[in-house]
Simulated assay, not measured.
Amino acid sequence: MKLLHACVLGLFVTSGCATTSASRQVPSLPDTAALDAEVARAMAATGAKGLAIAVIDDGRVVATRAYGARNAQGEPLQTDTVMYGASITKTVFAYTVMQLVDEKKLELDTPISRYLDKPLPEYPDEDRYSTWSHLADDARWTRITPRHPLTHSVGFANFGFLEPDQRLRFHFDPGSRYAYSGDGLILLQFVLERGMGLDLGAEMQKRVFDRFGMVNTSMVWRPDFAKNLADGWTMEGAVEPHDERGTVRAAGSMDTTIDDLARFAAALVRGEGLSPQSFAELTSPQLAITTKSQFPSLQAELPVEQRRKDLAAGLGVVVFEGPQGRGFYKGGHNDSTGNTLVCLPGSRRCVLILANDVRAENAFPQLVRFVLGETGVPFDWEYGDRVFWDGR
Results as ranks from 00 to 15, higher is better:
D335I: 13
E38L: 08
V55E: 00
T20M: 09
L188F: 00
L192H: 07
R114N: 10
V371Y: 00
Y329V: 02
E126A: 15
D390C: 10
V318G: 01
Q78H: 11
S347M: 05
A266R: 05
D380E: 15
G327Y: 00
W132T: 01
Y129K: 02
R386E: 11
A48S: 15
R70D: 06
G232I: 00
D231Y: 10
Q25H: 15
W381F: 15
S21K: 09
G332V: 00
E38A: 14
F93W: 05
E321C: 02
W233C: 04
L187N: 09
Q205Y: 03
D210H: 07
K227M: 12
G252P: 00
L29N: 05
Y178A: 02
A44P: 01
S23H: 14
S297I: 02
N356C: 11
P276E: 12
Q306V: 03
A230K: 03
F159G: 09
A251K: 01
V342W: 08
D210L: 04
A86N: 09
P365N: 07
Q366T: 11
I353G: 11
D138P: 04
A251W: 01
V55G: 04
Q299C: 03
A54D: 06
L162T: 11
F388Y: 11
V371N: 05
S253M: 07
P27T: 13
F93V: 10
L35H: 01
V215L: 15
L341S: 04
M1H: 03
Y115H: 04
G325I: 05
T375Y: 05
E361A: 12
L268H: 14
A280T: 13
I112K: 08
V248K: 01
W233V: 01
T79Q: 12
S15V: 07
D231I: 01
T64A: 08
N356V: 07
I56M: 11
V101R: 00
D243Y: 13
V304K: 14
D127E: 09
L302Y: 02
D390I: 09
T91Y: 02
F93C: 01
N216S: 12
P76M: 06
A363K: 12
R326M: 08
P303M: 04
T340C: 12
T283K: 04
A69V: 11
A267P: 02
A313I: 03
G327P: 07
L35P: 06
I258D: 09
L298Q: 11
P323C: 06
N334E: 09
S28M: 14
L120V: 03
